[in-house]
């Protein structure tokens, strides 16, 4: 089982993730329509690129936009969650050793303490995101099963990963579950709202071009995100 999950299944997961996301990107861009969207993408590439870059950058910076500033609690939770959820899988020492062995390359490695803090941060943030969905009427009315499903899907590798990290008696069992949970997550990213790992950039770029080209970007100083 271990051999299968770390062998063929690992390659399949990565392939599904990469190809799935590529298809998403290509389909999104091909579906853009200057007339329907009412944005002259081609005629004003420079203004468009500028608007897109500002729109992505401002939102990637904690408190970089007014929206982040007026909802500081959500902002802290959001960034703790997203920084951990991206950094831990990519930069954990154990993951990088595995990557080196399987794909022949590795990334920069996080100190163990930092990885611990980030991982616990992710779980704490996840808990708050769930409670927020239950407690706030304006979020509750929007919430569907899918929203809880992707939170659970994201939580699973972190919960199991942390269990492994504290070296439990049945380590091998938990490691298998951890790998399976991680691969399930990778496979489902392109098919769920988790695809926002790429569509976030596409959508932000698009609205940035909209404001950058049509809605004032060529008049004023650019949208005051």
């Amino acid at each position: 089982m271990h051999a299968f999950l770390t062998g063929p299944m690992f390659y399949i997961s990565i392939a599904v993730l990469v190809i799935g996301l590529l298809v998403r990107v290509v389909r999104y861009i091909r579906g853009l329509d200057w007339k329907l969207d009412r944005v002259a993408y081609r005629a004003h590439r420079k203004a468009g690129m500028k608007g897109a870059a500002r729109s992505i950058f401002k939102w990637l910076v904690p408190f970089g936009t007014r929206s982040w500033r007026v909802q500081p609690v959500m902002t802290v939770v959001f960034f703790v969650f997203h920084i951990g959820v991206v950094a831990v899988p990519l930069f954990l020492l154990a993951h990088n050793m595995f990557l080196e062995e399987k794909l022949g390359f590795s990334f920069f490695t996080l100190p163990a303490l930092a990885a611990d803090i980030l991982s616990w941060g992710v779980l704490a943030a996840l808990l708050i995101l769930v409670l927020r969905r239950i407690a706030l009427p304006e979020v509750r009315i929007l919430t569907t099963f899918h929203d809880y499903f992707i939170l659970a899907l994201t939580a699973a590798p972190f919960v199991t990963g942390l269990i492994c990290r504290y070296d439990p008696a049945n380590y091998d069992f938990w490691l298998l579950i951890h790998i399976a949970a991680g691969e399930l997550l990778l496979i489902l990213i392109p098919f769920t709202k988790l695809s926002h790992v790429v569509t976030f950039f596409l959508s932000r770029a698009q609205i940035g071009m909209d404001f950058g080209i049509k809605r004032g970007g060529m008049k004023g100083k650019g949208m005051a995100w």
Binding site: W59, R66, S67, F78, T199, I207, G208, M223, W225
Partner: peptide
Amino acid sequence: MYCPHGID
């Protein structure tokens, strides 16, 4: 202007 995904 307030949506992280830029949904209008």
